[in-house]
């Protein structure tokens, strides 16, 4: 088993359901994720949601980010004021718009702001002097390989630069949580590598940092995530499929000794097959 310790609850979803126009989209969503700590290494959390199209992943993500209100249930995240203050124990609060960063699959940015202006705007509510903010932005730009495009607009950026800017912007604004809706969709090998590097940078910069993403690429989910949820239509007692999405399975890759391995082993491949099988029947 990978040496790690589970600490405080970092994300808790309780009895979540969403109904639009009398149609249930998702139902009975419950999950708990805890802060992972590894000795001698800063380790954030990476949580993947997989499932076939139309199973409610995007709806769930809008709820997780506070951009939509659930019909029932709630999403709890750590109260950052309490995390940074005294006492240091984590107190949970209901998620609100802006608490959780959100990156869509198009990596949307403000079209009228340069990279630097976008990052500066993302930090507008952050405490600190103008000089401190400027230094912090410059530091991030250098780390993320964006220094040379800091004065360029989104339409002047390459795909990879745009992805890194979108993730960085959310990191500077939201703090520890970033939800990414299908971040690997339609990307070539090079850009997938860029996003993976961005994941590493986020995970390695603060142990509370938590990336939540959805993908149709099960191999990537297993390679990158330490926790995987499979969403799909549940099988009803009559043997037919329901028409709402829910969490069918949860794989804790840390407990399975499959997290943070870098390369895919035989066990990873078996897990991939198992996940695909679950998806096909849901």
């Amino acid at each position: 088993m990978s040496a790690y310790e589970s600490k405080d609850i970092i994300l808790q979803v309780e009895n979540l359901s969403v109904v639009y126009d009398e149609k249930t989209i998702i139902k009975d969503i419950n999950l708990v994720e805890k802060d992972t700590q590894r000795e001698g290494k800063v380790q954030g959390q990476t949580i993947a949601f997989v499932g076939r199209s139309g199973r409610g992943k995007s709806t769930l993500f809008r709820i997780l980010t506070g951009l939509a209100v659930p019909t029932t249930g709630k999403v709890l995240i750590p109260d950052m004021i309490k995390v940074n203050g005294n006492p240091p124990s984590i107190v949970l609060k209901e998620v609100r718009e802006g608490d959780v960063g959100f990156v869509d699959q198009k990596y949307t940015l403000f079209r009228h702001k340069t990279v630097y202006q976008a990052l500066h705007y993302a930090m507008r509510n952050t405490k600190g002097t103008e000089k401190e903010k400027r230094e912090q932005i410059d530091h991030y730009l250098a780390d993320w390989g964006l220094s040379n495009v800091k004065n360029q607009f989104p339409n002047e950026l390459s795909g990879g630069q745009r992805q890194r800017t979108a993730i960085l912007e959310q990191l500077l604004s939201a703090g520890i949580f970033i939800v990414l809706d299908e971040p690997f969709s339609g990307l070539d090998v090079g850009n997938i590598q860029n996003v993976k590097r961005a994941f590493d940078l986020v995970n390695g910069s603060n142990e509370l940092n938590t990336l939540i993403f959805s993908t149709h690429d099960i191999d990537l989910a297993v390679e990158l995530a330490d926790s995987i949820y499979v969403m799909g239509y549940p099988t009803l007692s009559k043997g037919t499929l329901a028409t709402y999405g829910t969490l069918l399975k949860h794989y804790n890759l840390k407990d399975m000794n499959l997290a943070w391995k870098g390369d895919l082993t035989k066990e990873h491949l078996e897990l991939i097959q198992e996940i695909k099988q679950t998806m096909l029947t849901s």
């Binding site: 718009e97 802006g98 869509d104």
Partner: peptide, 19 residues
Amino acid sequence: EEIDHARSLKCNRWEVLWE
């Protein structure tokens, strides 16, 4: 997506309108 992007950056609705 553009509206959601601004909201996710802690913009209130009037800031979304402005930006």
